[in-house]
Structures are given as C-alpha cells and as structure tokens.
C-alpha cells in the first residue's frame, strides 16, 4: 500500500506546475460568477471538470519523462501502478467536486441568492462528479492503450461516440419500453443516487480491469 501512496504522491507533486494556472482559471470563473448570476450554478460543474481533466494530465507527465520504465524498476507491479492512477484521478475529481459545492454554496450565501438551495447544489455537484467520472472510465483505458499523445485524439472521438450511444440507448429504451418521462424522472429522484452509485462502482471496476489487462500486455 505504501508504494501506491508513493505513486499517488508523485502525481500530486507533479500538480505543482499546474496550480498557478488552476488558481487563475478558478479566480476568473469565480469573479465572473459574482458578476453574472447565471454562472453561479455552473461552479459545481466547472470545478470537478477542471480537476478531473488535470488528473488525466498525469499520463502526459509520465509519458514525457518515460517514468513508467523507471517506476517498473521499483518494488512495485503494473497492478499497483494502474491502481494508483485510478485512485489519484478519483481523489482529484472528488476534491474538485467538494470545492465546487462549497464555493457555490458560499457565493450563494454572500450574494443572498436563491437560484439554487443546498440540496440542488449538492445534486448538481453529484451529477457533475458522475459525468466526469463517467468520462474518465472510458478515457483511462484509452490512455493506457494508445499512450498520452495518441490517446487525446482518440479520447475526443470516443467522447462524442459515447454521447451518441448513450442518447441513442436512452431514446430507444424510452420509446420501445414506453416509459413516460415523468415517471422515469420520479424513479431517478427516488432511487437515483443508489442506482448511480452501484452502476458507477461497477463500471469503474470494469474500467480498471480493462486498463490493467491492457497495461499488463504492453511492452514498456
């Protein structure tokens, strides 16, 4: 476990070069949201998105320094490396989500706005977190398969494809099963969090296994 901790620390240290850019983006966004009321509710979406994307950049750092070759000489395994990468990206997305939620709540408090209550902000935050994680679940195996450089282009294509597939499945299911939209939304409101958590965990595990399988076969 210590080795995994070491690998996660390595990725967090790499973030130092990003921190100034990240703070700038966030300050600009926060100032804008103070000036424009509509932007406030996007804070819980923008933060997990930013942090999640930065988490994915850890592939580029390792690729430029060819770190994987070196790390494999440590008392570690490819399994530890993949596990550490998943945990790091997940931690960072969680941190982004918490930041987004807190800042949005504080801004709303300061501006005495009632655009959204805490419950709504929490829902938006969870939704944004799930959306970002969903993307990462597909992006990470792509990065392992094609590497950081090629992976980015394939990643963009696959995101568009993924969106099309999801919307296609949703429309098809609603139409063929004739589920009324209202009852579907009610069902989501009632059991949504539990269903989403279970599905996310399941897909996360599948994604991890796929990445591990790809990485195990890869010649570093």
């Amino acid at each position: 476990m210590n080795v995994i901790k070491g690998l996660i620390i390595k990725d967090f240290f790499n973030l130092k070069s990003y921190i100034k850019i990240l703070i700038c983006i966030d300050i600009i966004y926060l100032v804008s949201s103070f000036l424009n009321d509509d932007l406030v509710t996007f804070v819980p979406v923008v933060f997990p998105l930013c942090f999640g994307m930065i988490g994915m950049s850890s592939f580029s750092y390792d690729s430029i320094a060819k770190s994987d070759q070196y790390i494999l000489t440590f008392p570690t395994t490819k399994k530890d490396m993949v596990k550490a990468r998943y945990l790091y990206i997940l931690f960072l997305t969680i941190i982004g989500t918490i930041f987004g939620f807190m800042l949005c709540t504080i801004i709303q408090g300061i501006k005495e706005q009632t655009l959204a209550n805490v419950g709504d902000i929490l829902s938006i935050s969870i939704g944004a977190f799930c959306g970002m994680t969903m993307l990462q679940i597909f992006e990470i195996p792509i990065m392992y398969k094609f590497g950081a450089e090629k992976g980015r282009i394939i990643q963009l294509i696959s995101i568009v494809l993924l969106m099309l597939v999801i919307s296609g499945i949703t429309t098809f299911t609603m139409k063929t099963l004739s589920i009324p939209l209202e009852s579907f939304l009610n069902m989501l409101q009632k059991y949504g969090l539990a269903i989403i958590t279970i599905i996310m965990l399941l897909i996360y595990m599948i994604s991890y296994k796929i990445s591990l399988n790809i990485y195990n076969k890869k010649e570093i």
Partner: peptide, 13 residues
C-alpha cells in the same frame, strides 16, 4: 538500485 539513461521521474519535481 537502478539508473536508466532516458527514464526517470517527471521533470517538474
């Protein structure tokens, strides 16, 4: 202990 010619940790450390 290993030294590899072209591979080490990230240059931002």
């Amino acid at each position: 202990g290993v030294v590899l010619d072209e591979s080490f940790l990230s240059e931002y450390l």
